[in-house]
């Protein structure tokens, strides 16, 4: 939540840095501890689940009303694809920002739309993944793996969703011609948040999905 015209109301800042940008970085620093707590919990509960399904290995689990042998739930190809899309969306928003700063409206709108689509695709991938896991017998309360996994990735997904909403708002402004180069900071702030959400996934992907 930032101020529409914070910089206009104050004399040049003590550090020379934009106040809103400083705020978003402060917020990002704080968020590091939020995700650290979630990741810690996931790791602490690794291998502590009393019943299946488990992330990688086969296990006994309750499915269709009876205990049976279940496969590990993770679908690495699917999540790899989602990961790649999220990574590329970071690149897209860099291009969009450079368009905004140069006043190249076509570049701005094109790449920003691509970013939003990428973000939506990632969220869609996650919804599909959760749905899929659920049908493999992995409910939210099934075991400590499922609880910590869904909470961690769910909060990340919520961040992606908020990022999509934020970027879409900026996109609407850009389409209406209300994002001239001197207001490119409005996109830069959203982009910083977007990159942060991306780097969190850069940690989650190997730590959660690839480490057995």
């Amino acid at each position: 939540m930032s101020h529409a015209d914070a910089h206009a109301m104050h004399p040049p800042t003590a550090t020379g840095l934009d106040t809103r940008k400083l705020a978003i970085w402060t917020f990002i620093g704080s968020e590091c501890l939020f995700f650290a707590s979630l990741i810690s919990t996931y790791l602490v509960y690794k291998g502590k689940s009393l019943v299946g399904p488990l992330p990688h290995d086969a296990s006994q689990c309750m499915l269709d009303g009876r205990m049976q042998q279940c496969e590990g739930v993770f679908e690495i190809p699917l999540v790899t694809f989602g990961t790649a899309v999220l990574l590329f969306s970071s690149y897209f928003v860099v291009k969009a920002l450079s368009g905004a700063q140069r006043g190249n409206r076509k570049q701005l709108i094109g790449w920003l739309s691509a970013t939003v689509v990428g973000g939506l695709f990632f969220v869609g991938m996650q919804v599909y993944e959760f749905y899929h896991f659920f049908h493999k017998g992995l409910g939210y309360t099934t075991n400590v793996f499922s609880a910590s996994f869904y909470t961690l990735t769910g909060f990340h997904g919520t961040h992606v969703t908020l990022g999509v909403i934020w970027l879409s708002t900026v996109l609407v402004l850009a389409i209406r011609g209300k994002l001239p180069p001197e207001k490119a900071l409005n996109l830069e702030l959203a982009a910083l948040y977007w990159h942060f959400v991306d780097v969190v996934w850069i940690v989650i992907f190997p730590v959660v999905y690839l480490m057995k």
Binding site: G16, L22, G29, S30, L33, F35, V94, F196
Partner: peptide
């Protein structure tokens, strides 16, 4: 992508210090 390399060192500090703390806690 987040421009920390060329941006103010204050931003880097705001990110890196919590990041290290986060890593230590994990």
């Amino acid at each position: 992508y987040m421009h920390l390399k060329q941006d103010s060192k204050i931003f880097s500090g705001l990110f890196v210090f919590p990041l290290l703390l986060a890593a230590v806690i994990i």
